[in-house]
Simulated assay, not measured.
Amino acid sequence: MSDTTSRALALLNLLQTHRHWPGGELAARLGVTERTVRRDVDRLRELGYRVESTPGSAGGYRLEAGSALPPLLLTDDEAVTMAIGLRVAATQQLSGGADLTLTALAKLEQVLPPALRQRVHALAASIQTTPGMGVAITVSPAVLGELALATRDTERLRLRYVDAEGRESIRRVEPHALAPAGRKWFVLCWDLDRDDWRTFRVDRIESVEHTRVLFSRHEISAEEVDELIAVAASWTPQKVEADAVMELPLAEVQAQFGPWAQGATAEDVGHTRWPFGGADWREAMYGMLWIPEGVEYTTTFPEPERAALREALGRMLRALDAPAPRDPQSSADALGYPRQHT
Rank of each mutant, 00 (worst) to 15 (best):
E209Y: 11
T211D: 11
W235H: 00
A230T: 13
R201Y: 07
R198I: 08
E224Y: 05
A242C: 13
V225S: 04
L188P: 05
E209V: 15
C189S: 00
D203R: 04
T199I: 08
W197H: 05
K239D: 11
P237D: 07
F186T: 11
A222L: 06
W235L: 03
W190I: 07
T211P: 09
E227G: 05
T236C: 09
W185Y: 08
R194A: 15
E209L: 15
E209Q: 14
A222N: 06
P237F: 03
D196T: 07
F186G: 07
S216M: 11
T199W: 04
K239S: 11
V231W: 00
T211W: 13
R204G: 10
L214Y: 10
H218K: 09
L228C: 05
A242F: 09
E219P: 09
R217V: 04
R194W: 13
F200P: 11
S221Q: 06
K239E: 06
V231F: 00
V187F: 03
R198K: 01
E219T: 02
V208K: 14
P237C: 08
W197P: 00
H210Y: 15
A232W: 02
V225R: 01
R201A: 14
I205L: 12
E227M: 10
D226L: 05
S221T: 07
Q238A: 14
K239C: 12
Q238V: 13
R217A: 02
V208P: 15
S221C: 02
